[in-house]
Design a protein around this nucleic acid. Structure first.
Length: 118
DNA sequence: GAAATGACGCGTT
DNA sequence: GAACGCGCCATTT
């Protein structure tokens, strides 16, 4: 049937990219989308996580570009994500993660390797 | 087919 | 750094 959701290949790439984020590290929606070969589809990544059914998917490592938790402060998802991040050694203050800045730039290159650079 | 919605991003103020 | 506004993408009503 029918292609109900977005292309399965795109979804697979996104999920694979998320899974590639190592323990204790964080990444942004747009970052994931870009690495998955879907620039500008940050929202698609969010939608995927919203409907994700995979408990093994490290969704808690995905944050906004500002390094902030995407959930509204005080909500269940917010607390859950913050709790999980801290459990991995990630410092979360006021719903904001303290570190992406230094790694954000290096992250995609450092973890997954040089993409459009050198 | 138009309008509304949402785990987003970026530039401005 | 926070608040605002506009743009972008995909699904739903």
């Amino acid at each position: 049937m029918a292609a109900l959701s977005a292309d399965a290949s795109a979804v697979a790439r996104i999920l694979a990219t998320i899974r590639d984020v190592p323990h204790g590290a964080v990444a942004g929606y747009g970052q994931i989308a870009r690495r998955a070969g879907l620039p500008g589809r940050a929202r698609m990544v969010a939608r995927l996580l919203a409907g994700n059914d995979d408990p093994t998917l490290p969704w808690h490592r995905i944050l906004r570009s500002d390094g902030r938790i995407a959930f509204p402060p005080g909500s269940k998802g917010y607390l859950e994500q913050a709790r999980r991040l801290r459990a991995e050694g990630v410092a979360v203050v006021n719903g904001r993660v303290r570190m992406p800045r230094l790694e954000a730039d290096d992250l995609d290159a450092a973890l997954w390797g040089p993409l459009g650079k050198p």
